[in-house]
């Protein structure tokens, strides 16, 4: 059986944390630049120009694109022919996040208890960790750094089968309208449809990991993504909520089988700072 040291996973996470905080995904930046050409009002043009200039400064000076460097969400796809060695996997993951956030001067934004003490854990741990066992003998590490300005505007609804496609469209649009200027448009919007209450939410977040140049491989869902994007941009919330044409850069829909009585839909709002990165450890 192939052995992979958990320390390699830790180092991979550390690298990705540093990279995604300061460097836009090229797809997103290209989409912002394209959106800029589509704007006509002085305020929305100014907002888009600011984002492009900010991206340059962030890369050149290694300053985070945004001060909310997010909670770290770590997705591990672990090949079933791999033996993980050298200590606890979860400790290694959190060590990677800790070293990544402290070593790259990122903000510690995690509090230990949601209601009472709300004491900052000082190193942005614990990470939210998802593991999938997959075929093969590699480990794929993906990290998302999720800001909460947009996370706070996310929502889930248990629709019924009769609500159908229109119900999904209405709920997504309603959620975006409620997010408005507060969640830092232009958005990338992750949508999960189907599954259960919990898996639907997980799906909506995983949808954000997909590059925005890639649509859902199922034509019907790719078409739904396009129609949602059109509808959302027709709302004219615009960059930073200043009005204009670029309310969202992309809508990413994922679906899963569900119960005969159900149609869960989850919308994970993400701002233009849609940060994620992956590495494969062989």
């Amino acid at each position: 059986m192939k052995k992979i040291e958990v320390e390699r996973i830790s180092q991979s996470i550390e690298r990705i944390c540093g990279q995604i905080a300061c460097v836009y995904d090229p797809d997103i930046l290209a989409s912002i630049c394209k959106g800029r050409e589509n704007e006509s009002s002085p305020r929305s043009i100014a907002a888009m120009d600011t984002l492009v200039q900010n991206a340059q400064i962030a890369v050149e000076e290694r300053i985070p694109i945004c001060q909310d460097t997010g909670l770290a969400i770590v997705y591990l796809k672990i090949g079933q022919d791999v033996a993980l060695t050298g200590g606890s996997l979860y400790e290694a993951v959190n060590r990677g996040v800790r070293n990544g956030y402290l070593g790259h001067f990122l903000r510690a934004s995690s509090v230990d208890d949601p209601i009472y003490e709300r004491k900052n854990t000082k190193d942005n741990t614990p990470a939210i960790i998802y593991t999938d066992i997959v075929d093969g003998d590699c480990v794929e590490v993906s990290v998302m750094a999720k800001g909460f300005g947009s996370e706070n505007k996310s929502a889930l609804k248990m629709l019924t089968p009769a609500d159908g496609e229109q119900g999904v469209i209405d709920f997504v649009c309603d959620t975006v309208a409620k997010a408005g200027p507060n969640a830092c448009p232009p958005f990338v919007i992750g949508v999960g449809v189907g599954g259960t209450f919990d898996s639907c939410a997980v799906m909506s977040k995983k949808a954000l990991l997909r590059p925005i140049s890639v649509s859902n491989p199922d034509e019907r869902y790719a078409d739904l993504e396009n129609r949602l994007l059109e509808k959302i941009n027709a709302m004219k919330i615009g960059p930073m909520g200043f009005g204009g044409n670029t309310t969202a850069l992309k809508v990413q829909v994922e679906y899963a089988p569900t119960h005969i009585a159900g149609l869960p839909v989850a919308v994970n709002m993400c701002c233009h700072v849609c940060r994620h990165g992956s590495e494969v450890i062989e």
Partner: peptide, 13 residues
């Protein structure tokens, strides 16, 4: 006043 969300590098200057 409102300023650009997600432009923290530029604003730090």
């Amino acid at each position: 006043f409102v300023c650009t969300g997600g432009a923290g590098a530029l604003l730090s200057h």
